[in-house]
Write a protein that binds this DNA or RNA. Structure first.
Lengths: 332, 332
DNA sequence: AACCTTTGCTCAAACGTTTGATGTTGAAAA
DNA sequence: TTTTCAACATCAAACGTTTGAGCAAAGGTT
């Protein structure tokens, strides 16, 4: 089946191409009956306007790109879902790109976006990214840019995350509140500002409640394997520890494993709490109490912010925060 | 920064627009030094061809769409990852759409794809979808279409899944092999052919080993909550059951919960096995033995199949299968 | 010297749409 | 009867690129 164009409709209706165009756009210059006829023919021909031609005219692509380090993680699928909804709601297209956590790839993708004339980009930077020049270039080319979740600040690109430090504090304070005196916090890749903020929140909660921060209060791990090894060792040696805090889902499941492996019971022998998107905590048994960091909410907020920028609103290149909530399940 | 066009380069170099176009495309008609100069100027102006203009010419969009019921599930993120890689490798764009498991939305999205001139569509149909006319229309418009994971057959649209019945059999046979005589299989939404096939595999394994299929051998549930309720009841009443098989990750985590809730120990009191993408089994403790259904592998295979179609290869509208492997962890 | 080839480029049309300017009616107002 | 003005429609240019056809000049062959 060949695709029909305005020309085809024009031929069949005896109108001119521009007449048809206006009729389909409900332009007041066109007589109602004419419009009706045009619409009928258009329908019969299964007409769809060619978006390339339209965008060529209007100089925009009606496209938003999302760049994530990987989708195969706890938080990102939800994030993508939230973004996708808002974007479709605005009648835009979503193109989805993965940087595989590599800076070089991230730069390529940005070039790609520039070529594609994307109107906006939502990006969670790779772990390797340390400067934002590529994003600035994108901005200069007229695209709206918003950073999400993992962010770097340079004062000109708005970014949106949860209040990491507050989330961390909330979780830690809850443990203390429940009577725990000696606990360990497990943290991820220290290259990310997210990690530093979450460590800060953890420490601040301890200080606030006059609990000494010892050498083994904070465990920084490189990859998942590390958690099991280091935590097992720590819990074995230091039996006074009664609670574990993990900064992410990835670490949570590892800690869960380690604890079970040692034959410890949650929450009787040891309490476990995490910052989480809320999925893993439900899967595990017992349900893990967590500070909920909803990917969907962040996605919606980020996309909404982006469309504000697109509509011409001036948005400062600063932090825009999303709320977190404590979800009490059965692990503390 | 304004975006530069061929015209701008033409003005600066004194060449004609077509000359510039050919120079940038390394056309033999253009003198080497001229090409060099054009490239320099293009670089200086930060020139990128306008893809809308290009696609308007070439009548294609270099775009593949993926339509999934939801991404927020175990299998789909991995699937998306696999697809995304192949698509980018071919220099195509990926647009990502969600049907929210609604047939009406799915039809809208297909219309959308038609409008967008997408070259190909990878789709996992919604639970509500019972006919494929919308996909046929898409095919007629010249797009390549491949179904993934959840599929419906009509003989003209190729589809790609694991061999569901074989996977189910593999898991069940493993249980039997390990000495289990009385087991229950838990299955999902019976509207999907996937479910029927997996039930069939389960039953076939039992028959093959002369194990009677009783009324309570098969548990069909509507949603997650159901699993916990029904399974608890069943295990409570029927203590001769020594193993549970679940057809998906979603059911697996529910069953895991129910079993733990009852105070039963895996694998000592009861064995648990599942068809799974391999993530949840690692999170849980002990690790759950499963038949691995890799989203990434399926994604790669599906996208590869799609590009074969795009390159003109004739692909029958039938099943194309992907291998599954049994991963032995500690739950049986 | 007349002819052919090659080299290196330009012209112009085409892709499908949008839109400001312009043209043609017919009917109402002067 | 002439003017005026809606109402409805057409014309033509423009968006940025690609591409077949055409053309001038330089060099090579008889």
């Amino acid at each position: 089946m060949k695709r029909s164009t305005l020309k085809d409709i024009a031929k069949l209706t005896g109108l001119s191409i521009s007449g048809v165009s206006r009729a389909l756009k409900d332009h007041p210059d066109i007589a109602p009956e004419t419009k009706e006829k045009v619409r009928e023919v258009a329908n019969a021909l299964n007409y769809h306007p060619n978006p390339n031609a339209q965008h060529l005219q209007s100089k925009q692509s009606k496209t938003i790109a999302v760049i994530l380090p990987e989708v195969n993680t706890f938080f990102f699928p939800e994030l993508l879902q939230g973004i996708s909804n808002v974007v479709e709601q605005h009648g835009y297209f979503l193109i989805f790109l993965q940087s595989d956590n590599r800076f070089s790839r991230e730069k390529e993708l940005i070039e790609y976006c520039i070529q594609m004339f994307v109107d906006g980009v939502l990006i969670s930077v790779s772990a390797e990214t340390t400067n934002l020049e590529h994003l600035l270039k994108l901005q200069e080319m007229g695209a709206a840019v918003v950073q999400i979740d993992r962010v770097l600040s340079n004062g000109t690109i708005p970014f949106l995350t949860i209040n990491d430090s507050a989330a961390s504090m909330k979780a830690t304070a809850y443990l203390i509140d429940k009577g725990h005196k000696k606990m360990v916090g497990i943290f991820d890749d220290a290259r990310l500002s997210m990690t530093l903020l979450r460590i800060e929140g953890f420490e601040r909660a301890l200080q606030l409640h006059q609990i000494a921060i010892e050498e083994d209060s904070i465990l920084i791990v490189q990859d998942g394997e590390d958690v099991e090894f280091k935590l097992s060792k720590l819990l074995d040696e230091n039996t006074s520890i009664t609670a574990v805090f993990t900064m992410s889902d990835k670490l949570l499941v590892r800690a869960y494993h380690a604890i079970n492996q040692l034959g410890l019971k949650i929450p009787d022998d040891i309490a476990l709490i995490s910052i989480s998107d809320g999925k893993a905590p439900q899967y595990l048994f017992p349900g893990i109490t967590h500070v909920r960091h909803s990917g969907e909410v962040v996605g919606i907020a980020a996309a909404t912010l982006l469309f504000k920028i697109l509509s011409g609103e001036k948005i400062p290149g600063q932090l825009h925060e999303v709320e977190t909530t404590l979800v009490e399940l059965d692990s503390v």
